[in-house]
Computed example of a mutant assay.
Amino acid sequence: MCKCFEGYSLAEDRKSCRSKDPCKTSEHGCEHLCVNNENSYVCKCFEGYNLVEDGKRCRRCGEGPVDLVFVIDGSKSLGEDNFEIVKQFVNGIIDALEISQKAARVGLVQYSTHVRTEFTMAQYSSAKEMKKAISQMKYMGRGSMTGLALKLMYEKSFTEVQGARRRSLGVPRVAIVFTDGRAQDEVADWANRAKQSVAK
């Protein structure tokens, strides 16, 4: 009967030995870190990286495909100073993304009494172009029709006509909504619909 040294166990062939810690072998396939989990293991990534779908490879945060739409409150109650702060925050997110038609596609909607698409996901393919458009974006400064904005985002912003990729491709769809919370219309219905089809 074959036996193994401490820290090893007998393999299925009952002749060869393998490490009880799979992270000490080269078979785990983890790109960054392998963490032993009793008889199994999990892969982890260095700070600033996320684990991708295969559970082994790591991707730098901000890389990879995503269809993203910003929905920005331009109401009078928000205030023009806060509106400028939101614009700066959006620019910061854009700087952290890899903007291209193959990676992150970004659109932006501003709402007040009316809803205005500032640019679609099909319109710009560089961070520089987007940030220029944001800098030129005019503050609406009237009412706060948040529900109407969510309706437009749900019905139009994530269509292929406006630059979204086909659902069959599995590209994440993300909406980031900025609001002061003082909606003048019904929000719940369109918010629930959006949650079912778009990550928020």
Rank of each mutant, 00 (worst) to 15 (best):
H32V: 06
G62Q: 04
E38Q: 11
N39P: 02
C34R: 00
G55W: 03
G64A: 08
C43F: 01
E38R: 11
C34L: 06
K56Y: 04
N37A: 10
D67M: 09
S40W: 14
V42Y: 14
V42L: 11
E31L: 09
C45H: 05
C34K: 01
V71R: 02
C34D: 05
C34Q: 03
V35N: 10
L33T: 14
F83P: 04
N36F: 06
R60V: 13
G79F: 14
R57W: 01
H32Y: 05
N82K: 15
G79K: 15
H32S: 09
L78R: 09
K76Q: 13
Y49T: 08
R57D: 11
F83H: 00
F83E: 01
L68P: 00
S75I: 08
D54A: 08
N50C: 00
C43H: 05
E31T: 02
N36P: 10
F83V: 06
K44H: 12
C58R: 00
E31S: 12
E53V: 11
K76T: 08
P65T: 06
L78K: 04
R59N: 06
N50A: 05
G74Y: 00
G55M: 04
V52C: 03
L78M: 10
L51H: 01
V69R: 01
G64F: 00
S75D: 08
C43Y: 01
E31Y: 06
H32T: 05
S75G: 12
N50L: 09
Y49A: 09
L78P: 04
D54Q: 07
V71D: 03
E84F: 06
V42I: 11
Y49C: 03
N36I: 13
E80M: 11
V52F: 03
E47P: 12
G62T: 03
N82R: 14
F46H: 12
G62V: 01
D81A: 12
S40V: 11
P65M: 00
G74E: 01
V66C: 02
E38N: 14
C61F: 12
G79C: 11
S40C: 10
N36W: 13
G74A: 14
N82H: 09
V66W: 03
V69E: 02
K76I: 04
S40T: 15
E80G: 03
E47I: 11
N39I: 14
Y49R: 10
I72P: 01
F46R: 15
C61W: 05
N82D: 13
C58I: 06
F70E: 03
F70P: 00
V71N: 01
C43N: 08
E31Q: 15
F46P: 03
E80W: 06
G55F: 04
V35T: 15
L68Y: 02
D67E: 11
E80P: 07
Y41D: 06
V71K: 02
G74S: 15
N36Y: 07
K44P: 06
K44W: 06
